[in-house]
Amino acid sequence: MLKGKQSWVFENRPVIAAAGVSGGPFEANGNLAEDFDVLHDDLWMGEDSYEKAHRVLLEEAGQTALNKANIQKEDVQFYIAGDLINQITPSSLSARTIQIPYFGIFGACSTSMEGLALASFIVNYRGADYVLTGASSHNAAVEKQFRYPTEYGGQKPPTAQWTVTGAGAALVTSKPSGQNLPFTTSATIGKVIDMGLTDPFNMGGAMAPAAADTITAHFKDMQLDPSHYDLIVTGDLGRIGQETAYELLTNNGLKIDRERFKDCGLMIYKDDQPVQSGGSGAGCSAAVLYGHLLNQLKQGTYRRILVVATGALLSPLTFQQSESIPCIAHAVSIEMT
């Protein structure tokens, strides 16, 4: 049901029946390694290209989610996935493997929540019994496309972020098999915000206004106070973007407890890992939410969370043609009974 200007309320409580998370070697050394289902000690993952390894990550995450829920892929009606690679080929090729009717979506690093919002909407209105949704990124494949070759010795500024090698997938359903599973309650779809920043090595700074806009819109539409949530977590704003977004939200009159405002890009790695301002990539919010945060919800650390995945909708071409960086953010609220 539409509520306010740009939010959906899911009154039928679509349940996240199960989720799967896969990651690479850098994530295995990270802060949340125990929350991953599959961890690779090699970036190639037994494939002969990084793009193929990228596809494998998503396939493993999806398959793990299905296995955990004990659901056959034939019983899943739709598959919604996206990533950062040109024409989202890793997602589409994983859809070729899994053979579930497929929506390919692109929202850059906000893809995870775009997918979860759409999956919840479809399930909420009985458009499907089961929808599998996921997002993924692979450090080497994404860097290759957006930046320099992996082995190129260019110095990254402290504002840069590290693309996460990881994937997260979740099975959303109207027919939960067990009790005490997390469910989605609402989603807010963001609009594209461009504050004129042009530095592709400072995505957090560019994306912060989009995050602030979507969060503000969410609370306005839902007529809630920020204290409603135990945790408001952004996707991959990193150090700079998160500080900036917090100030913007404060300026917008939202009083959020600083301790309850976190960022997936700052949670996934250890402080001593050389990631500059934090993690990023479509797999960042997907892996942290579907792994760590769902586990925390199930353990009772949090009861209600709002996940706001942020995406920078640029391409190397638009950057070279001196376009500024357009950004977007989508929010989904997840609760436990």
């Binding site: 402290p158 504050m195 700079i240 500080e243």
Partner: peptide, 11 residues
């Protein structure tokens, strides 16, 4: 916004 963001930017 650029001014606000500059405050948080790591140099």
């Amino acid at each position: 916004y650029e001014q606000l963001e500059q405050k948080h930017e790591l140099k």
